[in-house]
Amino acid sequence: MAMTDKHSQMLDRELKKGSAELLILSLVEARPRHGYEISKLIEARSRGALSFHVASLYPLLYRLEKRGWIEGRWVEKAGQRRRRYYKLTKEGKKVLAAQRSTWQSFVAAINRITDTENA
């Protein structure tokens, strides 16, 4: 049981890693969001299947920021603590488009294989 559990955790992590960049870029495409919001959205939209906690989310955000795909800015709103909002950059938009199409063809390919198996 423990073995299987750990195994699935690892698989989960690897899968997330591969797709995480795409997820984050997609989420900040429409408008700037802060880190907690991003993690909540991922969890909500995947209906709990995917979750990014603080320890994995922020290193990812910083990496994307460093690559110049997203840009973080501290924003102060009246009566609130300041928060760091991330928005998609021009370069990030191009990357997102490319990754999206790659992902879609990848998923389509996987589906074709797994569907055939199931059929």
Binding site: V54, A55, S56, R63
Partner: peptide, 9 residues
């Protein structure tokens, strides 16, 4: 994760 991932970034 935090330290490990951040170290790369």
């Amino acid at each position: 994760l935090l330290a490990r991932e951040l170290r790369r970034v």
